[in-house]
Structures are given as C-alpha cells and as structure tokens.
Design a protein around this nucleic acid. Structure first.
Lengths: 138, 138
DNA sequence: ATCCTAGCTTAGACTATGTCTAAACAAAGA
DNA sequence: TCTTTGTTTAGACATAGTCTAAGCTAGGAT
C-alpha cells in the first residue's frame, strides 16, 4: 500500500500544490474528516486555499477511485483515503467521529441465497454505531 | 408484525390527522422515500400539510424507534418503516433499488475488542451492494 | 359547556452542506 | 513570447433540514 499522492500520480493527474496539501491532509489518518475539516486543516498549511478547490479535489479523487466517499451519518460526507484495502466503519452517534475497523468475518457469507432476491452480491460493508469515550462520559 | 400506526399508538403518542397521513404514506410502500417524497405524497391526501410537520414527525418516529433513518446515498435521508425487525439493506449499484434483507448472524460479534477504540458499540448494519437481475442483464 | 393548558401545526427565516459560474491565473507546448 | 488548456478563486446559488414564534386543537378541570 503506497501513499495517496503516489497513487494519484499514477493516473496522470496533475499534482498541484493545492492538491498535494489536500491529499496529505487526508492521508495517514484512520479518522475520516468532512470536507470542512479538511479545508480547515489544509488551510494551516496554505491559508489562501479555497473551499471550492477542496470540494473539487475531493470529488476528483473519488472519481479516480483512490478515495472513498462515505455518507453514513446524514450530516456531511466524509472522505476515506484507504480505498485500496477492505475495511468497515465505526461511527460515534454523539459527535459523528468515524474510524476504520477490521472485522473477523466477511458479511457476504452470512447472507443466505434466498435473501439475495436474484442479485449478484459483490461486496458488503458494515457500519458499527455506538458512543466514543468522550461522548459516553459527557 | 403490526402496522406502523398501531405500533406508534403503543407509545402513547397522539395520532393526529397529519401524523396518520404521514405514517400511512410511509407504511404502504416497499420503497424507502425521502422526506420531500413523503411530503409530496402525503399532500395528495392533505394539501395543507406543512414541510415542518413532515420533518418533525419523521424525526419523532425515528426517536420512538419505529422508523429507521437511512443515509446511504449522500443526498437526502430516506425513511424505513420496518424498524420492528432487524434487517440490513441490499442496494443495486446500477439503478439504486434498495431492498430489506436478513442475515444469519449479528455483525457486532465479529468486531474484536481491540478494534473498538474504546467505543461502546451498540449496533451494526450491513450494506450489501451488487447488481439486481435487470441491471445484470442490461 | 366553557376555560385552561399542553402539545401540535404552520409559514417562513435561518443554517449547513455542497455545487456552479465567471474571471483570474498558471503551466506546457508552438 | 504567445496560445491553449487546465486550475484556482470568490461568491452566488441550490438543496436539505432545523428553528422560531404565533396560532390552533384536543382533552381535562370546573
């Protein structure tokens, strides 16, 4: 598994300074940020970075298949740079914090044939929900 | 499994004419609607029904645990009246069709303690993705 | 029956999230 | 250098949903 900038470069995608800052902000964390959080953090590196560029860049990285867009909490979308390996998500119902997790079994194996309604089922992802330590204490 | 209005009444929840129309709009269908779609359909029965009442009522039914709120496509939330039995969702990646399905095991059991990051994990839902018979043929 | 109260409904203002537009800017090739 | 193409920007716009304040309604007390 290589870093996100390297994976993006393989698509002949121009790595501008703005795009690099956004990719580096995204990468290397197992917490998934919203677009606003990425903007805020990336602006620490490049204060003139615009909101539109963050949204454009995230959408392009999703279209290239190198970043996953997650819409699991009904508030704002979150972006997951780990599109190159299988994993599931754990979400705090209090604050929306989202982390990657790994489960012991593949849920596809637990869906009986007569529940498949004729579909060809190719993948399954599990959304675990609960409270993070901070929200439980509060 | 009883109908949604009956289940709601058990919570000592006042069934006003507006709430009844909204519940019946939700319950009669096997498709999961957005709030706007519910408003549009419910207004055929009760044209003066307001948007705020639809949103309030849906949120209350979710809070009572009788309706599930689904945020799976990043656009708008959809509402599922079948909250009285555990189920997961199967989504066609071609046409967006969404069906309820039942799995053989509870995915919470597959998440090891060291993957819980200190969270109290209360539930898990699986989103199965694939192609429905029509989209596979196309 | 009438009044009172609590809770329900309403229109519209407001907030949050995300997209679009048009102009300025930057980089690469002729 | 000039041109072309693609990128970035600020801000207008769009969409989804929440909040507020006022009026309305149902049901209990008298």
């Amino acid at each position: 598994m290589s870093d996100l900038v390297t994976r993006l470069r393989r698509h002949n995608w121009r790595i501008t300074p703005q795009r690099r800052v956004i990719a580096e902000t995204l990468d290397g964390s197992h917490v998934h940020y919203t677009a606003e959080e990425i903007l805020e953090r990336a602006c620490e590196q490049m204060p003139e970075l615009s909101r539109a560029t963050v949204y454009n860049t995230l959408n392009e990285m999703v279209a290239l298949g190198e970043v996953l867009e997650l819409a699991l909490d009904g508030r704002s979308k979150r972006y997951d740079p780990n599109a190159d390996h299988e994993h599931h998500h754990l979400i705090c119902e209090g604050c929306g914090l989202m982390k990657d997790v790994h489960a012991l079994a593949d849920p596809v194996d637990w869906l009986p044939g007569d529940e498949r309604h004729g579909f060809t089922v190719t993948r399954a992802s599990v959304t675990y929900r609960g409270l993070c330590p901070e929200c439980r204490a509060a």
